[in-house]
Computed example of a mutant assay.
Amino acid sequence: MADVEPSWRDESLGARIRVALWLRDEVKEGGVFSKASIREAIKGTEQVDRRMRDLRPAGWVILTYRDKPSLQPDQLYLEKIGRPVWEPEHRAAGLRQISAKTKRYVYERDGHMCRRCGTAAGERYADDPGSRARLTLGHVNPHKSGGGSSAEDLITECARCNETVKHLTGAQMTKGQVWDRMTELPLQGKRHLLAWMKADFRPLNPAEKVWGLYRQLPAAAREELEGDLEKLMKS
């Protein structure tokens, strides 16, 4: 009896495998698709965009409108199908295993805050109060295929920044727009910003570091600490 060809509709398969099979069967090399279409196909799966990105180190070439100007901002182009990750011998292709020890070290090193926007875990976004930040790990060079998994290769990012940096969601400002924001800063602000640029790191003050640690705690513990600190300040 011949083996049954796996299908992206098989919900028992992992999300990365289902995404690969969907791209192979529904999009095919040279095909254009949207992020909305893949989310619609692979329903009930969190971070389906990330599962698609996980195919790139396995040789899958997926271009965005920044790589291929003829695309619309919400479109992607499947230029090349890489290794068949649905086959058992290729399922780990391109995956980088990050140890729990490394994850813990990176989160602590970065103060449990997104290195790109400074938002702490569970904190509301200033421009989107209805959403709260969820921390994850990203690569210092997000476009480097097969990037390493050592602490030096990783930074703490919130999920929103992680997606935007990899050109899969959102729209980034232009160089000119960022420059306009820079020139609007007071002199002291420009000095701070230049120092952060040169160090490629924004140091946190003691209160910010404790804030990042505080945001990691369960809601009940945070509420207790808020009351304790309030009492301490009144004593």
Rank of each mutant, 00 (worst) to 15 (best):
E89C: 08
L135P: 03
P203W: 02
R18V: 02
Q172G: 12
G189V: 04
C161D: 12
L213C: 13
R115H: 02
W196E: 12
G82K: 01
L76P: 13
S12L: 11
I62G: 09
D10I: 01
S235F: 12
G118Y: 03
L13V: 00
S99G: 06
W211A: 12
R132Y: 05
P186Q: 07
L55T: 04
G147L: 04
E5P: 07
P84H: 09
K175G: 09
R51W: 15
D228P: 06
S150N: 07
P73S: 07
V178K: 04
Q177S: 11
K28G: 08
Y214I: 11
R96F: 12
R104W: 02
P73Y: 06
F33G: 00
A93H: 04
H143F: 15
G111K: 00
L63D: 09
H167F: 10
L229C: 12
G30N: 05
E226K: 12
A133P: 04
H139N: 03
V85Y: 03
L185F: 04
A100C: 12
S34Y: 01
E29L: 06
K28L: 13
A92C: 07
A195Y: 04
A171M: 12
K28F: 11
Q172D: 14
G227L: 15
M182Q: 05
R83K: 10
K234P: 14
T174F: 04
I81T: 13
V210K: 03
T102N: 06
A58F: 10
A2S: 07
G14V: 03
S7P: 10
G148F: 00
T119Q: 08
L135D: 01
D110A: 04
Y77R: 04
T183P: 07
E152T: 03
S37K: 15
K68G: 10
R91A: 10
L168V: 15
L63E: 11
L225F: 00
L229P: 09
P73Q: 05
L194S: 10
E89H: 11
L213Q: 14
E89T: 08
W22V: 03
